[in-house]
Design a protein around this nucleic acid. Structure first.
Length: 431
RNA sequence: GCCGCCGUAGCUUAGUAGGCUGGAGCGGCCGGCUGUUAACCGGCAGGUCCCAGGUUCGAAUCCUGGCGGCGGCGCCA
């Protein structure tokens, strides 16, 4: 007999049928000559009733001895049962203990720190299981969207020699007697690749040695990035908002059960649609001040500002046209007003804040060299990036999205460390 | 870089204006129970009170230093 997934047998169709299932003991309760085993597999949980008179004294005792997380194969008959946690239970005819487990370290009392130390075991929990499935749907949604839109998936290197963002946040690694760094972003490499493929995307890790201790920072995070030739700022924003909606739809289609388990406000997600509100940076300054957040022109958005602003929207919101001096050199200054750049950030609602940073790239050689000089950068260090502006340059735009931040928001989590299987933060390097 | 908080049993913790033998829940072990819902009932074991030094008749509690951890800001995705 082949084994069923638990999720698949939780239906009236299976009522009265004989099945085999495999999984791990999630809960176990003994009462006299009965043992209730709540078994979990990757799909769901189901209560199984083991009677002493059916399985025999020896087997009954052996099951009584092992603890939660023991792995079992069991055979029995499915019955509809209102008293069971998931509405059905299995009356067990026979079972096999495959891998016993004693004294599983995680029980009902648990601190964050303890669970992080035991992440390799905590990934089995129903909460983590639900989050990981939502994360999977998010990745699926990305790939699906980009490919449908004619983007090619590609990859940049992880070992690099220079910075994309500020240089102080690079992780240095020894490299055969030389210094190398772990990449902060694949953006510059994607820019080179559009001259071959025109529209490209990648989902890869990025590394930032920021000493941040916040609920939205990781030192190693998954970065979904795209670049497209001939795209202007607004073209890119259009793809992005449609991408965000596509991914949300994908998660809603596949993972409603998991969102419910996490107590996510599902209706909120269902109501998100294009177009997203768009606000120029200068308007945002006024908006912030009108809503009790002190902000002056030239300030970057802090966590307080983002949180205060996004709580006023029930949709992600684009902020565009930031002052040139607070953005990196590669952003294209607005030809109509070079004191601002053609860029955009996407802020997630409900106080979550920035999930995307993107914009149009400077494609004229003179402008790029001037901006590099203003920021004190040596063009020789970026010779290959500068070269792109010498040989058939074209207008182009791109963006980077923090996938873990996105999952953090979609799943409605309290801290980004719950959004990734093994979070890496300034203080957390294991397991 | 800055601000704040914490370290007591395997886990979660009570106890800290110094004072009797440092309590409890969960987990573990032994026993009981035929419908449990993170079951329940009885019993047992389990402690370097983070480390070092100091004050004191007396320190988990006060002081100094160290180690480890947590939350937040800035920065960013």
């Amino acid at each position: 007999m082949s084994a069923y997934r638990i999720e698949d047998i939780l239906s009236d169709e299976f009522d009265g049928k004989e099945v085999e299932i495999r999984g791990w003991i999630y809960r176990k309760r003994r009462t006299g000559k009965l043992i209730f085993v709540v078994l979990r597999d990757s799909s769901d949980i189901v209560q199984c009733v083991v009677e002493k008179k059916i399985v025999g004294n020896e087997k009954f005792k052996s099951l009584d001895k092992v603890g939660v997380e023991s792995s079992l194969i069991l055979k029995g008959k499915v019955r509809k049962e209102e008293r069971a946690p998931t509405g059905y239970e299995i009356h067990v005819d026979d079972f096999e203990i495959v891998g016993p487990s004693y004294n599983f370290p995680i029980n009902k009392d648990k601190s964050d720190e303890f669970l992080l130390d035991n992440r390799h075991l905590w990934v089995r929990s129903r909460e983590m299981n639900a989050i990981l499935k939502i994360r999977d749907a998010v990745f699926e949604g990305f790939h699906e969207f980009f490919r449908e839109r004619g983007y090619f998936e590609t990859q940049g290197p992880m070992f690099v020699t220079g910075a994309v963002e500020g240089g102080s946040t690079l992780f240095e690694v020894p490299y055969f007697g030389k210094k190398a760094y772990l990449t902060q972003s694949s953006q510059f490499y994607l820019e080179t690749l559009i001259f071959s493929l025109e529209k490209v995307y990648t989902i890869a890790p990025s590394f930032r040695a920021e000493k941040s201790r916040t609920r939205r920072h990781l030192t190693e995070y998954w970065h979904a990035e795209a670049e497209a030739a001939w795209y202007h700022n607004e073209d890119m924003m259009k793809d992005e908002e449609e991408m965000v909606v596509h991914i949300i739809q994908k998660v809603l289609e596949k993972r409603k059960k998991e969102l419910k388990l996490l107590n996510r406000d599902i209706e909120f997600l269902e109501n998100i649609d294009t177009p997203f509100p768009k606000m120029r940076y200068e308007k945002l300054v006024d908006f912030a001040n009108e809503h009790g957040v002190e902000m002056k022109y030239g300030d970057d958005l802090g966590a307080d500002e983002e949180s205060a602003i996004t709580k006023h929207f029930d949709s992600p919101v684009f902020i565009t046209h930031y002052p040139t001096e607070i953005k990196p050199f590669y952003h294209r200054p607005d030809p109509e007003n070079p004191s601002v750049v053609l860029c955009h950030d996407l802020l997630a609602p409900e106080g979550y804040g920035e999930v995307i940073g993107g914009g149009e790239r400077t494609y004229k050689l003179e402008v790029l060299l001037q901006r590099m000089e203003e920021e004190g950068l040596n063009p020789d260090d970026y010779y290959w990036y500068v070269d792109l502006r010498k040989y058939g340059s074209v207008p182009h735009s791109g963006f980077g999205l923090g996938v873990d931040r996105f999952v953090w928001w979609i799943a409605g989590l309290n801290h980004i460390k719950y959004a990734i299987p093994y979070p890496r933060t300034i203080r957390r390097l294991k397991p």
